[in-house]
Design a protein around this nucleic acid. Structure first.
Lengths: 230, 230
DNA sequence: TAACATTTGACACCGAGTGTCATCATGCTA
DNA sequence: TAGCATGATGACACTCGGTGTCAAATGTTA
């Protein structure tokens, strides 16, 4: 969505796929792209699915085949972001303290945010203008929370405490991002994020002498050994 | 909402009101009551507004006059809860440290939760079964965050730090409540809440030597002097 | 009781979301 | 290369949430 390709807006790797699948990717990409442009211009609620579909030259029904809900066309990035996070957290260095792993991963994520500043800022502008999107957006934080809780629990400390720390981290980072967005991306996201994180460092479960328990990670839906980039 | 009256489910003070307004209160109460019963039985999404309206002997259109959105009939409590919180935070003792005020208020709120255990547990069960409600529910946390941020900022410390602390508190408490709900209300909500809070005590802004600044409270929508029970 | 104000219900309409089915393009195979 | 199986598409119809409009019913006040 940054580089302008000669023919069309090309998605990711369209190679090694049949024409059928390439078309599918392109259709989805076009829909998302068109939709975001419309949302940015007039707000999420003011844009109808019919319009998006028409602008992308597909039928309304087809739109819903690609995006089960209108909101999904907006939150396309999220799934990828989660995957990125999990990849970053898949600590190569198993000796590293869990909190350090989390810190490193989140700061990298901050860098990625800054890299796509433009996109993310407009995204948040749309978000801010739409309560329903805002609400859905908060749900992603829960997903992040689950992931972080698992990682923080790796140390073997009290998993409940790990989850508390994860919750605090997620909450605090949202505020930092919020501030970054409000400043138009001018504040130093990485620095402020790190500052906030270090405030929470003492919350991480102290080196665990409860190593035996690997159960009760709470609401997690993540397998302890999962998370490889693919 | 606590005492059971002989004739109907009576709302609050129905005295000193004309017949018109009494009917209005009763209609709203009936709708909410009927709706909650249906939601609890079959889930939020499976119950249609028509059903609720029919069960309450009003037209569909009338339902929407009382509750602009279907979701609103579910979140009736929330507004009251926020008011309670603000009342609790309206510290009588201005010498008390902001964090202590927050702690006191939140623990009182925990007690209230425990008092209405039954209601709240079923409420959360419905919530858990409905992504849209869950999403909306998270928005209330933001409101709480705003309120707490203001109070924590009273001490005169860095208001940004106050907001960070508020975010951490809200995030952490949601986890505690989540655990309480999952346990069927058997864990000690107050104790676990306090434990979690004390973990965050060091986050509260250190005694402020920046007393001059009263601006930049961030996303708050709360007037510093507001919050009296009414 | 008469005049006024407000609430209600009926109707019509829009947009999101879903099931169904005929049609058409793709990809594989003879 | 012809043909067939598979799967994507578009058209249609329908449900449900949500809203505007207006006439009828109900409450309030003089």
């Amino acid at each position: 969505m940054r580089s302008a390709d000669p023919p069309k807006a090309r998605a990711v790797a369209e190679v090694g796929l049949g024409l059928r699948d390439r078309k599918k990717l392109e259709a989805a990409a076009t829909l998302a792209q068109v939709a975001k442009r419309l949302f940015a211009a007039r707000g999420f609620a003011e844009v109808t699915v019919d319009e998006i579909a028409a602008a992308a030259n597909v039928s309304r029904r087809t739109f819903f085949r690609y995006f089960p809900q209108k909101e999904d066309v907006f939150f396309g990035r999220r799934a990828a972001q989660l995957a990125e996070l999990e990849a970053l957290l898949d600590a190569p260095d198993r000796e590293e303290a869990p909190f350090a792993t989390v810190r490193r991963a989140l700061l990298s994520l901050a860098d990625l945010h800054v890299e796509s500043r433009g996109e993310i800022l407009t995204e948040h502008r749309v978000l801010a203008g739409s309560p329903e999107l805002l609400a859905r957006d908060l749900e992603w934080d829960r997903r992040v929370l689950d992931i972080l809780a698992v990682v923080l629990g790796r140390g073997g400390g009290d998993p409940r405490r790990a989850r508390l720390a994860a919750a605090a981290i997620v909450g605090v980072l949202r505020v930092v991002i919020e501030r970054w967005v409000d400043s138009g991306g001018r504040t130093d996201l990485r620095a402020e994020g790190d500052e906030a994180l270090m405030l929470l460092a003492p919350m991480a479960p102290p080196r665990g002498r409860r190593g035996r328990r690997s159960f009760d990670v709470g609401h997690s839906g993540l397998k302890p050994g999962a998370a490889r980039p693919t």
